[in-house]
Design a protein around this nucleic acid. Structure first.
Length: 267
DNA sequence: AGAATTACCTGAGCGC
DNA sequence: TGCGCTCAGGTAATTC
């Protein structure tokens, strides 16, 4: 399940392969993923040269001269650059075939990914328009979190996983950041102090940056970007003991999402 | 407006 | 071995 670090690593891996290459053909093998694949891709993309590969939250943005290809990897989506054509396997839903015989291939067993197209400013696209600040930019800080959380009674974990609050914080890093910040995930967002908001913004940034750094150290040269080998402190450890105090971790559901925390270290 | 719920999808892991 | 069940989870859409 790609989180923001995996998406950023995918961006870094693909950009040098794709920039400057002209698209020759588009082959979509399914009509829709979570949302329909735009039917016009096969008509508008051929002849366009990819100018850059950007990212907004967990969305990848391919600048294709006359418009932008927007791709979300969902839960199981995966983008691969193939230097030369190869027969598609199971769940290889979309190929963007490039000049010289290489191609960009989208693979997604659960079809939770999204592919969109816009000729307008991608920031104005409905999928991106409502997204909050990037967590790795200065716009995202404790003062911001404090200000936008004042009227929110929802659990702070759900609050930071809401893309409108901050872009691209998924379940894994929400759990990890809250553990590091020493904040219980079920606290109402509005109950956080300014100091706690500052700490939370800091830990969100830290876990994402560390993950990107470790991933780029270990995986960037590989053909696939899987989960980086970061040892999670709480995620997936519901039955284990706290790495800090050795007490029992607790597992609850928030917004129907698995939530693990240490009731002693997180208040 | 904010919160809660549903829908989308398939592989993995489980008990029987 | 295989059947049926539950779970995993991002986010848009829908409902309250």
């Amino acid at each position: 399940m790609p989180e923001l670090p995996e998406v950023e690593l995918t961006r870094r891996r693909l950009e040098p392969e794709l920039v400057g290459k002209m698209i020759e053909r588009v082959e979509a093998r399914v009509p829709k993923l979570r949302l329909p694949i735009p039917a016009e891709l096969a008509e508008v993309l051929p002849g366009q040269t990819i100018r850059s590969v950007g990212r907004r939250g967990k969305y990848l943005l391919f600048d294709c001269e006359t418009g932008w290809l927007i791709v979300h990897l969902g839960m199981t989506g995966f983008l691969r650059f193939l230097p030369q054509a190869a027969p598609p396997g199971k769940h290889d839903h979309l190929d963007i075939c490039l000049e010289g015989g290489s191609l960009l291939r989208f693979h997604d067993p659960r079809k939770f990914g999204t592919v969109a197209w816009t000729t307008d400013d991608p920031a104005k696209h409905p999928l991106l328009a409502g997204i909050g600040p990037e967590p790795l930019t200065p716009a995202f800080d404790g003062a911001y979190l404090f200000r936008v959380s004042r009227s929110r009674r929802v659990a702070v974990k759900q609050f930071i996983m809401d893309g409108a609050t901050v872009a691209g914080v998924g379940n894994i890093y929400a759990n990890e950041a809250l553990f590091r910040a020493g904040i219980r995930p079920d606290r109402p967002a509005a109950a956080l102090t300014l100091t706690e908001c500052g700490e939370l913004a800091r830990t969100i940034r830290a876990v994402l940056e560390e993950s990107i750094d470790q991933g780029s150290t270990y995986r960037v040269a590989e053909a696939t970007v899987a989960y980086h080998p970061l040892a999670f402190a709480v995620y997936g450890r519901g039955k284990e003991r706290c790495t800090r105090c050795n007490g029992s971790l607790e597992e609850i559901r928030l917004g129907n999402r698995s939530t693990v925390f240490c009731p002693r270290c997180q208040r």
